[in-house]
Each structure stands twice: as C-alpha cells, then as structure tokens.
Design a protein around this nucleic acid. Sequence first.
DNA 1: TATTGTTATACTCTATAACTATA
DNA 2: TATAGTTATAGAGTATAACAATA
Lengths: 152, 152
Amino acid sequence: MPQKSFLPLVRELAECFQAFEAFSAGHIRSLGLTPSQFDIIATLGNTEGMSCKELGQKTLMTKGTLTGVLDRLEARGLVVRQTSSTDGRSWVIQLTRSGQKLFERIFPAHLEHMGTIFTGFSDAQMATLRRQLAQLKKSFRASLEVGEGETS
Amino acid sequence: MPQKSFLPLVRELAECFQAFEAFSAGHIRSLGLTPSQFDIIATLGNTEGMSCKELGQKTLMTKGTLTGVLDRLEARGLVVRQTSSTDGRSWVIQLTRSGQKLFERIFPAHLEHMGTIFTGFSDAQMATLRRQLAQLKKSFRASLEVGEGETS
DNA sequence: TATTGTTATACTCTATAACTATA
DNA sequence: TATAGTTATAGAGTATAACAATA
C-alpha cells in the first residue's frame, strides 16, 4: 500500500458507523430493548428457532453472554428454550407468541426508522452504496476469520 | 417513500456495521483497550486536552459514564485531570506522556489494520464510498438531533 | 474425547438521579 | 439559578474458565 489513500476513508467509516450506532441504538432503546436483545429478536424472527450455537454465530455473541441475554428475554416471556429432539445437550430457542408479536411490531418499524436516512439518496446512489457495503462486509468477515486469535 | 427500495440497503448497512464492529473492536481489544477507552485516547491524541463536556460531546458518552472510563485510564497512568485555569468547576483532560506514546503506537496501527480492508478497492471506488459515507453520516447526525427525546 | 450450554467471577459500560462546588 | 463533574445505584453486556450432561 504505497500511498495510504485509504486513511481518510477509514476515518469516515469510523465516524459514519459511530453516527449509525447512536441513531440505531437510540431507536432500539426507545422500543424497550437493548441492542443485543434486538439482535436476538431480529435473528429469531420468521424462523423455526435455532440452537444457542447457531444464534451465537449469527449475532457474534459468545455462549456465556448468550445465556445471560436469553435469560432476560425468557424472563420477559419473549423467547422459550425448547428441548431438542435430536441432541440432548442442545436447546431450540424460539420466539414466544408474544415475542413474535413484538418482532412484527418493532422490526419493520426499525427498518422504517433507518430508512428515513436515505430520503436524500437516489435509487442509483442507493444501489451503488449497497454494492459497496456488501463488498466491505465481505472484506470484514474474511479478515476476521484470518485475523482471529492474533495479538496484533 | 412509495417503494421502500431502501430496505435491502438498511439490512446491508446493519450487517456491514456488525462486521465492522467485530473487526474493529477485536483489534482494539487485542491492543489492551476497550472500545470506549480507545475512543477517548484517539480523541485526546494530538490535542492540548479538553474538558469532560467536550470529550463527552465528541465520544457521545454521558458525563457519568465518562467519569468511570477516565478513572480507569487515569489509574493506568494514561490520562490526567488538570485543573482548569478559567473555570473552577471544570477539568482539562490530557494524555500523559505514556498515554501519548500509546496513542502514537496504536492509532496508526489501528488505521493500518482497518486499511487492510480496502485492498480490493480502487482509488475511484474509495473516493465514491467516502463521499457517500460522509453524506450518510450527515444524515444520521441530522436525524439524531431532530429525533432526540422521541419515544417513537 | 469433544461438544452444548450453564455457572461463576470479575470487569466494563450504560443510564439516571442526587449531589458538590463553582459560575 | 444554571453548569461541570462526581457519586450512587442498578442493570446489562463482555471474556474467561470451570463445569455437567450428552455425543
């Protein structure tokens, strides 16, 4: 990388995501959930449920963290742990009816809320941005796998 | 918003952000800091120091949170609270020499680390992406100000 | 032996409100 | 009265390691 022309881009990326965080987390909290809880609800929505392991892989939470977050959601009656028919060690985590209703109420609302951001973007701009974000995401994920366990 | 063509983009943004988070926070923790602590160090770097109020505005932390984070950084000898010459209620938070050295060591390293993501991007792509991220950031910040205090 | 998920521990961040010292 | 920052409190997420039950 001879010229490091990416430096301003990295700063922009960090600042943009900081702004995204504030905007997104603020709305989620106003809905009565923490970002982690929303993440679980959104991941379980429109599925038959899944194991802790799968849930952990999708939300990037470790199993120890997951137990705590699920405990709180279960205490609020939003998810249940069903015994797995195929693996006695495992559980199937599902939304309860109440959890499903919450999902249906807040998930589209959150997407709408996020969507208000793009009123100043043309369809073409959105398409371009989406492609670039997809490429970026792919890079992040690839580097994460490679870099796992490194100590810098 | 007639067609809601922004929905896939919102999902992409959220997923990209999640991947960014994992990538960035993972590297920061490998450097021995929490994301909040890194945020403070990065904000104080190359400045004469600033008040808690200003620091809170830049890092989006509330004053109560800030006190705790600063306490831990001060205990590690990375920042100091100097009395302000102009306002007896206020403090000037500065990096210590040790904090400055840490900043100089990890901040460029972190930018380099983030920069590895963009090896697959051309200069033109990076320029476009940067412009779009800047526009996005502006939208987020504008909506945050408007939406503050709303309960949805 | 390896894997799934829970427990236990200790720390960090977060929001909020009451508080102090100064302006 | 208002503001800068601290303290107190309670809750929530995090990493890590030890553990039980099952594969």
